[in-house]
Each structure stands twice: as C-alpha cells, then as structure tokens.
Design a protein around this nucleic acid. Sequence first.
DNA 1: ATGAATATATTAGTATGGTAGTATGCAAAA
DNA 2: TTTTGCATACTACCATACTAATATATTCAT
Lengths: 226, 226
Amino acid sequence: MELLSVPKRGTSAREYVYETLKRSIIFLSLKPGQSITEQEIAEKLSVSRTPVREAFIRLVQEGLLETYPQKGTVVSLIDLERVDEARFMRRTLEKAILRLACESFPSDLAFELRSNLALQEVCLEEQNFIRLFELDEEFHRLIYRGCKKERIWDLIAQINADFRRIRVLKLSLGIGVGEVVQQHREIAGAIFDHNATRIEELVEVHLPQNDPGFERLRREYPEYFA
Amino acid sequence: MELLSVPKRGTSAREYVYETLKRSIIFLSLKPGQSITEQEIAEKLSVSRTPVREAFIRLVQEGLLETYPQKGTVVSLIDLERVDEARFMRRTLEKAILRLACESFPSDLAFELRSNLALQEVCLEEQNFIRLFELDEEFHRLIYRGCKKERIWDLIAQINADFRRIRVLKLSLGIGVGEVVQQHREIAGAIFDHNATRIEELVEVHLPQNDPGFERLRREYPEYFA
DNA sequence: ATGAATATATTAGTATGGTAGTATGCAAAA
DNA sequence: TTTTGCATACTACCATACTAATATATTCAT
C-alpha cells in the first residue's frame, strides 16, 4: 500500500495523517473497499495510533472511511446515490450562486478567475490532469468566494468527496477533459459580461442530471462501487 | 456548568460525550464563548480524556467548538455571517426540494408529515418549545427524505448549528413561534395539493433574507455573537 | 473426514502518563 | 508605580498500555 504523503512541517501529527489519507483516498491510492488499520497507518507514517484514530474520525464524518468497532476500517465504496445527491445540490446552489456572480463580482477575484482559466488551458495542452483537477476545484471555489459564500463551497466539498473520486476515475480514462475547460470558459464569460441568461443551461450541461459516463466507470471498475 | 446529559446505553463513550456536548451547546447550556477543557468534561461525564478529545474533534469540524493547541477549547460564538450563508443555502435548496415534493411525495411520508404537524399544534398550545423545535427539524427532514435527499439535510444540519442556536434564543424570547407552525401548515398543504405555485413565496417567508429579529437578539445577548 | 468447542490473534475502544507550548502571578529591578 | 524575568500551573497533543469484542486457527470428539 502506498500513501500519497504530504509535507509534515508546521502542523500537527493529526493534520498530517488526515491530509495524507484524504489525498490518498481521493486520488485512489487507497482503493474503495480496501481495508486499513490504525496500527498499519501509524507505522507507515511513523506516528502513534492516537493521531491516526483522530484523523480516521474526521474522515468517517466526511464519508471517506467507515469504521466497524473491533473489526476494522475500510475505505468507503463510491456510492452513486450519494453522488447524485451531491450533483443535485451543486446544480441547485451553483445556479443561484452564478446568478449572484452575474450581478456583481469583485474585480480582483475576476482577475484570479482569468488566471485560473489560462492555467487550465496550459494543463489541458500538457495533459497534466492532476493539476487541472485542482484548478477545476479552485475555479469553483473562486466563484463562491466572490459571492461571499465560501463556507458553502467548503460544505459541498465534504459531500463531494465521492464526486471527486469519480472525477479522478474519469480523468484516468481521459473522459470529457476538454469539454469541462470549455464549459468553464463559458461560465466565466457569463460572469464577466454580467449576462445571466445562459446560466441555467450552462450549469445543466456542466453538472448533468444523468451522466452516461457513470455506466462506463461502473463497468470498468465494478469493485469500486456500492 | 451543567451538561444536558443523554442516555449512555448501547453506544460508545465517544458517542455519548458527543451527543451530550452537542445538545448542551445547541440548547445553550454551554454558552457561546465559554471555555471548557478535556479534563473537566471527562470528569463530569465519568469517562477518560480520550473519548472527550474525539468528541471535540467532531464538534470542531461542525463549527461548534474551537480548539487552540496548548491553550484551550471554547464554545464557538454565533457567527451571523455564517448564519446568513446557511439561510441562503437552505432557501435555495428548499425551493428546489419543495418543487420536487410537489411533483410527487410518497404517501407514507405524507402521513408522517400530517402527524408531525398535529404534534406541532399540540406543542404550540402547551408552550412546549423544546419539543416544537425538534418537531420543526423533523418536519424538514421528512420532506428531504420524501425526495430522497436526506443526505443533503444531514449536511445542512451541520452548517445549521448556529442557526439552531439562534432558534433556541428566539424561542426563549418567544419570538415567532406561532407563525412558524402556520408556515409549516402551508408548506405541507402545497405538497399535499401538488401545488407548487406558492413555493417561492413560502420559502422566502419561512427563511427570510433579512431577519430583523437578529438585531434584537444581538442587543439582548451581545456576548454570544462574533 | 467433519463439526463443534476452544484457544489465539487482531481489531478498535478506552485509560493514563509524559511533553511542549501558553498564560498567569509574583518577585525583583528600574 | 511600572516593567521585566521567572516559577508555576494549566492546556491540548501524543505515545503507550490495557480492555473488550470479533475473527480466525486449532484441537478434539464424533
């Protein structure tokens, strides 16, 4: 088992373990359904069981781990119902947020949005999908921040963990990468032009209700799904 | 310091501590801004510090506690910006959910909704505001469940913790109790009649954008607010 | 050979002691 | 009187030891 370690400095052991595990789960270095134990992680990361347990507790709360007392802990399977709910939530909120953004959006964040888009183009050309993924998340966060609704994005990010694993799977199959960047361009354009007329349509395309890609993922990786 | 203890049986010490503290915070038995320590809670609840620490971690994640390493832990102040965001989120989602509910709603849950409303009336007459508060939460949860979106409600409940403390403060001043029950009646009526025309208006009234009651609360309990 | 009873190993849950960082009070100096 | 240095107490963080529950392996009787 390989863990995607993160810098340990300037932070507590708990935070270090938490970030490492979270990253490992989302980028599928820890597989959905895989069993792990406190002891094992503690040894791998050279800490005691205590901070590991405490990181586990947070990850359970976010739905990324499931702990069974006296039995063990497993990485949660990807639950497509939960993904559907997360998408519904994002669709609904993002329409409302984008309408706000089209009314007014602070210029400094608009600049950051443009920069982010430019970087997305670069990553697309260079096929750097991991970085593109991070830019995607940052893109949406910027929009929420511009509307003073960043806490909502943080909350979405929690229920969205499954959604993120799906994204990683899709990226690994190279599904729909270019389209997403194009959609981001159009969404940003709507904000810059204060033009809310296409918001509904753009969001529906960006976060469709029925994603046919799901079926393919399910066929390719049946053991990852609940 | 008094804690609102909950039944301890059939659950872990961690869960027991967590539920007890959460209840105590929401019902303001632990005051916003108040300092608490692991040691102190452990002694009061007759458990060791470990399950207390672990309960603290969950409560920090939900925004109800703030821990400062080597300094201490305090009950979070009520943050009105956060409350505004929570309301925005609920307004937006609840409109969408209620539109779904007006299209179709399972009959067994419709029955539970009717029962819940009847109990709300009873509590209103008997001035049992604590129970009414719980029924209120259950009312909304039932609607989300009927639309197969219960996870979203669970998530809202997290960001909503501040919102719930506000409700408790309002109830203690007897603000707007009757109105809320009436609003619930109308919302339920819309679902039963499959009539979505007034949804927008009902939600705006139930979860207003600007609540003048806030100012009064702020005057009455300035030390509770950030 | 098979099944049940028992022993062993493994797990998360809990308790406890030590550590390092922080605040506080007091005494000494300015 | 005010400020500085220091001792003390207090905190959350972490490591470790122990407990209780579960799963697995082994033994023994049939």
